Simulated assay, not measured.
Amino acid sequence: MESEHHSGAAKARRGGSAHPRRADAERNIAAILAAAASCFGKNPNASMTEIAAAAGVGRVTLYGHFSSREELLSRLMERALTEVATVVDATDLAHGPADEALLAFIRSSWQLLDRNLRMLHAARQALPAEAVHGHHTGILSAMEQLITRGRQEGTFRDDLPAHWLVTTIYTLVQAAGDQVESGRFTSEEALDALEATLVSLLQRPAA
């Protein structure tokens, strides 16, 4: 029994339990993501070395959790768009006039997008277009449902395919972000221009 006791104590000293290691890993991942978001928010070209230093971890630890800059950007984009998806749910796109629901969604989600513009710009530069689009699938699906509802209500135009209108909205939102990133628009100006363009885009043609 004494031998078993000493064996168990030795195992504990060697870190036999996986829980402390798991907790350390979770703390490191959280620190890396926070540092990466901050670094990319200041500089879309931030390197993995800069991010490791900002997170207070070594490069070995950083690459142990994220094998590449692209993987890290993909995780950050996924996290940001999950927040946008939460806004979609909170906006309740299934009720109320479709045009009002669309503008409410654009305004509320723009705040999140604006906060992450440089990171999202970096992700779009580093990741394949298919991967970027894949992160938006849920949001785009909700948008297409809203467009379809607006057409049924007679609010939105029905002379163009719904999927084309959704693609155009998706492209315009990205373009608005790029205009802010380039300094051509302030965030407020970009949102105003985006709203005005979307209203014109979706408006039913005169009979």
Results as ranks from 00 to 15, higher is better:
Gln152Gly: 01
Val87Arg: 02
Ser47Arg: 13
Thr167Leu: 14
Ala46Glu: 06
Thr168Asn: 12
Ser17Arg: 04
Glu70Ser: 08
Val60Cys: 10
Gly96Glu: 05
Arg157Val: 06
Gln174Ser: 11
Leu120Asn: 03
Asp114Gln: 09
Ala101His: 01
Ala90Glu: 12
Gly15Ala: 10
His121Glu: 13
Val57Thr: 09
Leu93Tyr: 00
Arg13Phe: 13
Leu172Lys: 14
Gly58Met: 10
Thr82Arg: 14
Ala142His: 07
Phe185Asn: 07
Ala34Thr: 06
Leu194Arg: 01
Gln203Trp: 05
His136Tyr: 07
Glu2Asn: 11
Ile29Tyr: 11
Thr186Trp: 14
Ala122Met: 10
Glu130Met: 04
Ile169Ser: 13
Val57Ile: 13
Arg184Asn: 07
Ala193His: 14
His5Tyr: 07
Ala54Lys: 02
Leu73Gln: 03
Arg107Met: 01
Ser74Val: 07
Val180Gln: 00
Phe105Val: 01
Ala37Leu: 11
Gln145Gly: 00
Gly56Arg: 00
Gln125His: 11
Gln111Cys: 00
Ala18Pro: 03
Ser108Cys: 02
Leu33Pro: 03
Tyr170Val: 01
Arg79Cys: 04
Ala196Val: 13
Val199Arg: 15
Phe40Cys: 05
Ala55Pro: 12
Glu100Val: 04
Ile169Gly: 13
Met119Asn: 01
Thr186Pro: 13
Arg151His: 03
Trp110Arg: 01
Ala122Leu: 07
Ala80Asn: 14
Leu198Val: 06
Lys11Val: 09
His135Gln: 13
Arg27Glu: 14
Leu194Trp: 03
Ile147Cys: 01
Ser74Gly: 12
Met119Ala: 00
Thr91Ile: 04
Asp99Met: 02
Ala34Gln: 11
Ala80Phe: 05
Ala101Gly: 02
Asn28Ile: 09
Ala80Lys: 11
Thr167Pro: 06
Phe40Asp: 10
Ala9Gln: 15
Val180Lys: 00
Ala101Gln: 01
Glu71Leu: 01
Leu73Gly: 06
Glu50Ser: 06
Thr82Leu: 12
Asp158Phe: 09
Arg69Tyr: 13
